[in-house]
Design a protein around this nucleic acid. Structure first.
Lengths: 234, 234
DNA sequence: ACCTGAACACCGTTCAAGT
DNA sequence: ACCTGAACACCGTTCAAGT
């Protein structure tokens, strides 16, 4: 309680200084950051517009001049998170020069899970579909589709080169996304302990599950590049 | 608005009749059912204790005589849903007499996804971990663990019989659950359309993704029972 | 052009009174 | 033993006033 009050006072004072000239400056961005902070501190769903306003040093009604409603605020937060997510995935893949399409698919999964573990708060917002308006955000759809397209491209290439065991490509992308998304959700929602996975082991266990899936995609007749990939991942 | 008022009046009248003798009768159960109805009608997270009370024909404070708080109400709903879920999974597996352990694992996945599609509301409550107290409910943990144990048993048997491709069993159960849970969540949260899957195709597509995963587990050296299983599933 | 702060219609939860 | 209904401390959102 005392900590909260102190924080609020500090924020108010800071904002007041700025506000003497231009009210606040960049309240929109300040609200996004305040919201992210609040999510980090407590439950994602318990975040309050009023609390975000207080944290940013403005009154309860101020946020609604920049966001039509709470959902729009949360969506803006998700957009920033998704932008970073996409950027990191793309940059991680750019670093993988060697390896066939399935090795690169494995790298994609690694980057995905790695990001989730390092940025649980951001992932929480992205996947909180009842708090954000995913379909209504072009930015969210675009970034998500880009990741999707990368995966589809890698799988198509894998099939062209005869790397895949399955003769039907159609169900593969859905299965791949479901696996990685399911792992991420289980991690975020705290399901892992009941599967005998402690917090320390979480990333390792998820990466192993993902690797198992990718290995399962590979044709037994294909080149024995699997072991090489496994070693490189260490 | 007028529809709501009408519903409320009817419920009040009905409850009033019963209450002349024993207040309500079984308010606890009535609240659980009312909550389920409300979730079916709108968003799961938008459900209100007050609305459930109204629907059950009692005043706003009445629910708190049967549930300490909103979370407890939602948890009770989840317990009932999970009980049915477990029962259906077990009974579906009991019907599978032929087939090796991986065929039965496939049947488990089929039953899981089938139930999710037929009972989206129930699955929504079960997996809404921020609305319920999963760890605090022995019933939820027990039912969930039983499903988990069945899966673990089938996988252990599969390994014993040399059906598995992987030499390490450890990551397999997590991957299997993540795959099926991820598919379910994607379905519930409306991710499927962006993967080119319409509502009609949803169950088929999910079942295909799950089948692909189970197939990927099987040792290439094993008996060619795969095609037989695939045919039987049609 | 942007923010304040009162106001409104909600919530979850409590509790003294009623039956 | 169980329910009512007022009350409290919250919310999201609006809007007339202020700067």
């Amino acid at each position: 309680m005392s900590a909260r009050t102190a924080t609020k006072k500090t924020a108010s004072k800071r904002a007041a200084v700025r506000r003497s000239s231009y009210h606040h400056g960049n309240l929109k961005q300040a609200l996004i950051e305040a919201t992210l902070q609040l999510i980090e501190e407590g439950e994602a769903e318990a975040v309050t517009v009023r609390a975000a306003a207080k944290r940013a040093g403005v009154s309860s009604g101020a946020p609604f001049r920049h966001f039509p409603n709470r959902t729009a605020l949360m969506t803006a937060v998700a957009e920033e998170a998704m932008r970073r997510f996409r950027a990191e995935i793309v940059s991680a893949l750019d670093k993988v020069v060697a390896g066939d399409a399935l090795v690169r698919l494995h790298a994609l999964g690694t980057a995905y899970l790695r990001w989730v573990v390092r940025n649980p708060t951001h992932f929480k917002v992205i996947s909180a579909r009842d708090l954000i308006d995913f379909q209504g955000s072009e930015s969210l759809r675009r970034d998500n589709q880009e990741i999707q397209a990368i995966m589809d491209g890698l799988l198509a290439e894998a099939q062209l080169r005869g790397l895949l065991r399955a003769d039907d490509l159609v169900p593969v992308p859905l299965a791949a996304r479901a696996l990685v998304y399911g792992l991420a959700r289980m991690y975020i929602d705290g399901h892992l302990p009941q599967w005998g996975v402690t917090a320390n082991q979480a990333e390792t266990a998820m990466q192993a599950a993902m690797a198992l899936f990718v290995d399962g995609l590979r044709s037994p007749a294909g080149p024995p590049e699997r072991r090489a990939k496994a070693r490189r991942a260490k």
